[in-house]
Each structure stands twice: as structure tokens, then as C-alpha cells.
Design a protein around this nucleic acid. Structure first.
Lengths: 213, 213
DNA sequence: TGAATTATGTGTCGTTCGACACAGAAAGCC
DNA sequence: GGCTTTCTGTGTCGAACGACACATAATTCA
């Protein structure tokens, strides 16, 4: 859990002249819109409204700012995810996660798609620790599904013998598909229809199966 | 249908010193691996084995080379797609399309994921005509599903009253999800399991529905 | 108030970007 | 053979890249 935390705000010296969260939010939008490689420092300082030395002092490098921006993205949507997971049954939780995703991915006042999922296509020349962190955040997306399903199994609202990992992989794949669809310009209507279809498959997918095939 | 075709090979003058398909294939791999923005001309001329003026004479610009590379990618897999579509029933065709996708997306001797689908995240500064062409190629992926489903409806192997567009969107979303999963490092096993799940949903999804909801 | 500390804005570093000028090489045409 | 045409490799263009030096401004501590 040793998150690379923000350094403690110093008491002495000239105070920072910008709100860290605010500039991070603006950086997030640019990265979210254009991706890591296609975003230049010029783009960033223009959007963030600070000069590049301030940016480097606060975030270290472009790659690390990207990581921080993705973490800010996750933090922004954490409540939504937690509320979805808190639904009484696994089925309701999974559906809520996907409905939330549609809403977020296709908002017209924000860039399209899921910023976390899209990091998978940023092969990039980023430092290994940044790559690892991005990978972990993608894994966390998958884990949202599998952990909630496992809880459903314990609670009894998911049939005993259901292949939890397979179901989780299925819905995680839908989640990624929704993200990429939204990036391509698909609107809320069609995305919602896909979620409806995916949820219609729930009874079939959670039906108990013989161990392996 | 006015494809921006290759100019006719000239009879006079010094002949071209490289095989166009060969160098296009090498460019494809680099773009496929790193994406458009993260690929530099340096990367390309190194992989293609030709000097940049030759490259520009043959392809015009980096963006246009990218378009040509994606079209080469499509041409490479055309047979596989056609054979899948030629299956006797729509269900078999859809499953074959997805199984093919898994095989292609997770090959270890090639970059991961679908080069066409991934173009959706390359917002880029490419010329409008290139962007349009990439968009059309993505749409063609969707159309593979919807057209084959429509034929199944005519042939009678898809129940009358099935919501073709919804089913097509569902499987197209799975296709995109598989691509993004593969990019993130998911292996053949898990991807195959997702296809199995998606196909298990077939009877439910193709069940006739009342017109709209 | 002066010393110490920290952030800011201007300017610029060396590199690499995408793209091409130019001269020479290799072919067909007469 | 010369003449024309077309392609090739060397070299380099101006612009933009990511990153930072440096002097100055703003704050706390003594």
C-alpha cells in the first residue's frame, strides 16, 4: 500500500501558486482525450495554466504526471464504483458498474471511454514503475467484478458452482468493449443496449458448470 | 469505392528497389505494436530498411503510411474473415469470427490486439480523410456481424423478431473487449473463455423481442 | 528586519521530430 | 551511345520535443 504519496506541504518558503488537484484535473482531461504519446508538454502547460518548471517540480516528469492523472481519474469515480459494489446482489452490482460505465464513457462534456482501460494501448517509453502502476489499475478494474462476484457466492445470490472467474472475465471484457466503442463515437443508446444484452446473459453465465472443459 | 489506389508502376526510369508489400508489412508491425503517435519516422525507416525519401515517395506521409498499414492488416486477415462468414449458420459465423479474433489478438509472434479497433484511441492530428478511412474500417468490423446476422435471419437460422442490431452491437463490443484485453496481456485461455461465455448467451440474445423498450 | 527557504516565469538547452533538397545511380527510349 | 525519367542515399531543414538553469518573487523563521 505504499502509494507514491504527495510530498508533505512545506511550511517555509514561497507557497505553491496553484491548486494541485485543479491542475491535475486539467491534465487528466488532455491525457484522457489524446492519450499519453500524442500529448505534448505544450498541450499540458497550456491546459494547466502553469509553467513547465512548476510542473516538473510538482510531478517530476511527463510520465509521472500521466500516472498521477490516471490516479486522479480513478479517485474521481471511486464513489460511483463503491456505490455500485454496495448493491444488495452481485447481479445488481455488475449491472450498476456497467451502467455507470456507459454514463461516464459517453458523457459529451468529457473525453470518451475509460482512461484506465485505454492505458493498455499506451505501450510507451514510460518508466517501468509507471507501467506497473498502470497495469495494476487495470487489474483493479477486473477485480471489482471478480471480488463482487465472490461475495455474491458467499451471500448466496450467485448459484453455487458458478465459474466466478469466467463470469468476471466476461463482464470485464464487456467493460473494455464499452470503453473502446465509446472512443469510436458510439452513443449512449447503443452502449446501453449492449449492457442490457450482457445482463440478459447473467442467468446462463452464472449457472453451475462442471469444473473444466 | 474510389479507394486511394497505388499509382501505376512506371515503365521508364529506375525501378523501385524494394517490395512495397514487404516494407508495408514491417511498418504495420511497428504501428501495430506502438500505435501511431508513439511511432517515429526513425522507428519506421529502421524497421522498413529504406531511407525516408523513398518512404515519402511511396506513401506520402506518416499518417498515410499508417492508413496503408492498417489496410494491409485488413487484407492479411480478409481470408480468415471471409471463411468465418461463409459458415452455414449465423451462430457458427459469429463464433468463428470471435475465435479467429482470439487467435490473432494473442499471437505471441505478433503485436497484441486488433490493429483496426485500436485506431479508435488514436485521436491524432491526422488528415481528415485518413481519420474517415479509419472510422470506416472500424465500422466494417461492426458490419461483419450485423450483415451476417441479417443473412441468418433470411436463411431462417436466426429466429424471426430477433433484434439484429442489438445482437450485432453486443458481439462487436465483445470483439473490441477482446482486443483491449489482449493488449493488456490477457492470454489465449482467458480470452477463449470469454468467447465461450459470449456464445452461451446466443439463445437468449437472439430470442424475439417486442420492438422497442 | 534580515537570513533562509521555496516557488515562479523567462529563456534555452541538446535532441528528435516529420519532411524534403539535392546530386548521383539505374533503368527505358531513341 | 546519349537523353529522359525515376528512384536512391546523404544530408539537413525549421519546428517542436522533454527537461531544466537561472534569476527573481514570495513566504517563514529568528
Amino acid at each position: 500500500m505504499s502509494r507514491p504519496s504527495t510530498p508533505p506541504p512545506s511550511k517555509r518558503g514561497r507557497p505553491v501558486g496553484f491548486d494541485r488537484t485543479e491542475v491535475l484535473d486539467r491534465a487528466m482531461r488532455v491525457f484522457w482525450e489524446k492519450g499519453f504519446a500524442a500529448t505534448s508538454m505544450q498541450d499540458l502547460i497550456a491546459a494547466m495554466g502553469i509553467a513547465s518548471p512548476s510542473l516538473y517540480a510538482a510531478f517530476g516528469s511527463k510520465a509521472n504526471l500521466y500516472r498521477a492523472a490516471v490516479e486522479h481519474y480513478v479517485a474521481l469515480h471511486e464513489d460511483l464504483v463503491l456505490r455500485a459494489i454496495a448493491m444488495p446482489t452481485a447481479r445488481e452490482s455488475v449491472e450498476a458498474l456497467l451502467r455507470n460505465a456507459v454514463t461516464v464513457f459517453a458523457r459529451t462534456d468529457f473525453p470518451s471511454g475509460c482512461m484506465v482501460e485505454q492505458t493498455a494501448s499506451e505501450a510507451g517509453d514510460m518508466a517501468p514503475d509507471v507501467m506497473t502502476r498502470l497495469h495494476d489499475m487495470r487489474a483493479a478494474n477486473h477485480d471489482n467484478f471478480s471480488m463482487r462476484l465472490r461475495k455474491g457466492l458467499e451471500d448466496g445470490d450467485v448459484p453455487e458452482g458458478a465459474d466466478i472467474e469466467a463470469v468476471a472475465s466476461f463482464y470485464a471484457t464487456i467493460h473494455k468493449g464499452l470503453s473502446l466503442s465509446a472512443r469510436g463515437g458510439t452513443g449512449t443508446g447503443e452502449l446501453s443496449s449492449v449492457v442490457t444484452s450482457a445482463m440478459a446473459a447473467w442467468p446462463v453465465l452464472t449457472r453451475p458448470r462442471e469444473p473444466r472443459r
